[in-house]
């Protein structure tokens, strides 16, 4: 090494210098590059096997056919033709999209209100921390456990109705086995994703910025609209993004609380797969993937989440 570097000293012909230029630099660069790839490989292998391969296989299988109970490995559009000509398919797509958008809107609004309240109207730091903890803690507990209490809470002889009848109100059958129940349940499950990020985004805003806006004569509402909301947008989108990730694949809530009254694509996929109808399930999965990519992509357009890293 030393002789090589020595030969790079000035006094040697410029042509030699140019040829040997940056050997060490390039070696260091290559060493860094190699290390990066070595560190990355295990994660990429898992992703390739358990995420990329499945997606490719789904596209492939969606062109197969079932003949009775027999799986036929062809490559034609018969399966897609069947799926696309079935009015149920469009109902599924529409109900999935509608449910997801309604829940996201609700969760966003609730999360924004709650996060804003927590950040601006709870002045005690201790209480703020406690409330924040309470608001995000349920995320860490079993989601399934949370939805199986729905029935005793909202069922015909459940807690709500017990309380209602004991104060002389009529029985309610609003929140079990219908679409409203499903949306309500999903909102309550996924609002935890929004409160935290919105709160953090709002508390990162310098108090001076808000004071400055108020000094310039802006009302609280104008300040919120023109200063705080744009700055909190990152937190809101982070929350909605994660809520959407869970929402698109969630088939259990619809089944257990919605009672299957308003099936989503995820539920349909699970049922077709359960009965061995792989090509149909795969076609629906491709469609669901496209819808999810579309919605998540739109959210990324609103705010590039990489900025939050």
């Amino acid at each position: 090494m030393s002789t090589l570097s020595r030969s790079l000293s000035p006094g040697v012909e410029t042509a030699t210098v140019a040829a040997g230029e940056g050997v060490n630099e390039r070696l260091a660069e290559r060493r860094r590059n190699r290390r990066a790839w070595m560190l990355l490989t295990p994660a990429l292998v898992v992703t390739a096997v358990a995420a990329i391969a499945p997606l490719l296989v789904i596209i492939w299988v969606s062109f197969w056919r079932t003949d009775g109970l027999q799986l036929v490995r062809t490559f034609d559009f018969a399966n897609w033709g069947r799926v696309l000509s079935d009015p149920t398919f469009y109902r599924l797509v529409w109900s999935t999209l509608r449910t997801v958008l309604i829940v996201l809107a609700l969760v966003g609004l609730l999360g924004l209100v709650a996060g804003y309240y927590l950040a601006r109207y709870v002045t005690s730091r201790k209480l703020q921390t406690l409330l924040l903890m309470l608001a995000i803690l349920p995320f860490w507990t079993s989601y399934l456990i949370r939805i199986i209490t729905w029935q005793p809470l909202f069922g015909n002889s459940g807690v709500i109705n017990f309380l209602a009848t004991s104060v002389g109100l009529p029985k309610m059958e609003m929140f079990l086995y219908n679409q409203r129940a499903m949306i309500f349940a999903m909102s309550s499950l996924y609002v935890v994703f929004v409160i935290g990020p919105v709160f953090w985004a709002l508390s990162r805003i310098e108090p001076d910025v808000i004071a400055a806006s108020r000094m310039l004569g802006a009302s609280a509402w104008t300040t919120f609209r023109t200063v705080e909301l744009p700055l909190a947008r990152g937190g809101l989108v982070v929350g909605l993004f994660f809520a959407a990730i869970f929402l698109f694949g969630d088939y259990a809530t619809g089944r257990l609380i919605g009672g299957g009254t308003n099936p989503m694509l995820s539920d349909a996929i699970s049922q077709y797969a359960g009965s061995g109808q792989w090509p149909v399930a795969a076609a629906l999965a491709v469609v669901l993937f496209l819808i999810a990519t579309l919605v998540l992509g739109l959210l990324m357009r609103v705010y590039d989440l990489r900025k939050e890293l």
Binding site: P54, I58, G249, D250
Partner: peptide, 11 residues
């Protein structure tokens, strides 16, 4: 980010 049911089915 891929909906879970899709990856379950695909895998």
């Amino acid at each position: 980010v891929t909906p879970g049911i899709i990856l379950g089915l695909g895998f």
